[in-house]
Design a protein around this nucleic acid. Structure first.
Lengths: 204, 204
DNA sequence: ACCTGAACACCGTTCAAGT
DNA sequence: ACCTGAACACCGTTCAAGT
């Protein structure tokens, strides 16, 4: 029925485990993720994963890390194609973040349900902080052009990132009124722009 | 060593299971939560919990529900003791929300990692929406007094709740710069007030 | 280096049976 | 009504052994 079973997994078992884990996460949720089933799906013994991940949590951490890396790439790409104004760039960032969140709901949940303690892997901590770097750059530039009020970077970056992340997180958990996600996102962007605006906006 | 074992659990096993589950969640995290261990801790057989929760997910849902109920109560209480101005009431709401989040980090994670689909228990959906009712009331009053700009309620309520929830969620996952949580929260409140403010603020 | 197979101590869930 | 005890099909983790 089957070609003679190969004794060993052919290629990169580590990468195969991560890819398969993400599929399972997406399709059946985090509770259904089992190392033994992953191994079965890939045709290796149930003990094989331990060569690449010391335990289940290590696999989950690695999965979250790939999530942060892809999110960072996605957000950075949104800035390449965005216009020059602060409003355009913020809108692109927000839509990009929410797009990733809705397309990878379970993964986003996993990414932020992991404690980002100093105890966590350094790579993970760094990856999750790397995201806010983008927001900070955006704000710094907006301040130079006078589109953003003069205040310490964190005093704007943290509220802004909180809003973005909060909206994405509520959307993912279906806690928002259904159906009007795009309109709600427009409101969120407009509200954030108001929060960032200088006291006496330059008359055009 | 022990008093003669009672054949049945004395009181309300359902409530005892929920209370013990919350303790375990807080002390050892969600991965360590097992029905069998709960049952052992309470001195009943491992099959006893199934009389009260049809499966593990049902217990988690019920736990999330108690979380939403307590959060709602906490938020409502914050409004009782707050001042009359919109700024005061918003500040009280925000501090109350973040206080609950940091004091119940794992529970908050659980509350929002449950899909609030129409498929979810009606009580759960209702409880999670009941929260935003408070925010909506706050905004409606702020608009009457001229402290909040004239816009559809949702156009302010959703961004505001996103910000609050996002900040709480980032704080819980240790994704914020450590140590300055109170100062960061002040920034978040100030930023939100700016987002809510009318275009031409009334001169005092 | 990478994987297997057996072993161990756990799970969640179900169900006949007890009180 | 509420709980027990046994049974079943799963887990994660470890470790000697194979190639």
């Amino acid at each position: 029925m089957q070609t003679r079973p190969r004794p060993y997994h052919h290629g990169d078992l580590r990468a195969a485990l991560l890819a398969r884990a993400e599929d399972t996460l997406r399709e059946k949720g985090p509770a259904a993720l089992s190392l033994r089933e992953l191994a079965r799906d890939l045709g290796v013994s149930h003990a094989a994963p331990s060569r690449h991940f010391k335990d289940k949590q290590a696999l989950l951490d690695a999965l979250a890390l790939t999530g942060f890396e892809r999110l960072s790439t996605t957000l950075a790409a949104s800035q390449e194609t965005a216009g020059d104004s602060f409003a355009d760039r913020l809108g692109a960032l927000a839509r990009s973040y929410v797009g990733f969140a809705t397309a990878n709901a379970e993964l986003l949940d996993l990414m932020f349900s992991i404690k980002h303690d100093p105890a966590a892997s350094e790579a993970l901590v760094q990856a999750s902080q790397g995201m806010s770097v983008l927001a900070t750059d955006l704000i710094a530039e907006g301040r130079r052009t006078g589109e953003v009020r003069d205040a310490p970077l964190d005093a704007i970056a943290i509220p802004m990132f909180s809003t973005l992340h909060g909206f994405a997180s509520l959307a993912v958990s279906s806690t928002l009124p259904p159906g009007a996600l795009d309109a709600n996102l427009d409101d969120v962007i407009a509200h954030t722009l108001r929060g960032c605006a200088p006291d006496h906006p330059t008359p055009h």
